[in-house]
Amino acid sequence: MNTGVKIFLFVLAILAFYSYVGQMVPQKITYPPETAELAADMTTEELAVAGAEIVAGKGTCLGCHTIGSSDASLRFPDLGNIGAVAGSRIDGMSEIEYLAESLYDPDSYIVDRFLPGMPAIGKPPIGLTDDEILAVMAYLQSLGGTSTVTLATTHSFTGQGASGSDGAGATPSGGAAVALGAGLDGPGVFAAFLCGTCHTIDKPDRLVGPSLFDVGSRLSKAEIYEAVMDPDATLAEGYPGGVMPATLGASGFFQKVSPEEIRALVDYLASHTGE
């Protein structure tokens, strides 16, 4: 064999060997950290993806709403088909305007069979920014329909969102977007995790869950503690199981709340004896 060819094959063999060694060590790709910021040039599709994250996370929407559930006992409208029906809910109101209204001013139109109870998303405690709400709208449109919203989209509520349009502008008292160990007091925890959406505390009315107006006289502190941390352990008569664990779980309550905060919440609830 020609010397040149031999050398070439030899070099090739060495390179193959080193490549092999390279394959033998652990293989891992490191991706740059995800940035939650909404870039101005995001496409509608990217916006919808970001919106889905906000819906599940900061927006805490899934604490009440379901996506694609046909359960007859739903407490709040299912969003599985919202993209298809948003444009025809109110005569003369466009899809975008309807979605914006239902996020910024939820009580102005209540879907049949449901009760009012949704907080304005653009205001504290949830306090999404205008841009974040646009992302949520893009996602909602994609549920059963086609997204058209971009960050350049405007509607009659533009400018009414929480301040700070850089996407990171969660207000300090910020809803369920509380950071780990924010050190809240009892009423703070009650507000932050939106307990009031399902429970009344200052009047004996029933909402989705039992009123907590007189909880301090009905239950001991230990029982309240159990009812918060493991809601299905003892169910109040007439209420279905599974609702509260799912709702609280979705809001990240069990991960985010600290022992001190739970203690404060229990004390706060125990002080409500119905008088």
Partner: peptide, 17 residues
């Protein structure tokens, strides 16, 4: 992103070749 070492090894081998 930072690729795997295996990928980097292959690029290096080709470069050296």
């Amino acid at each position: 992103f930072t690729p795997t070492l295996g990928f980097a090894s292959n690029v290096i081998s080709v470069t050296v070749l």
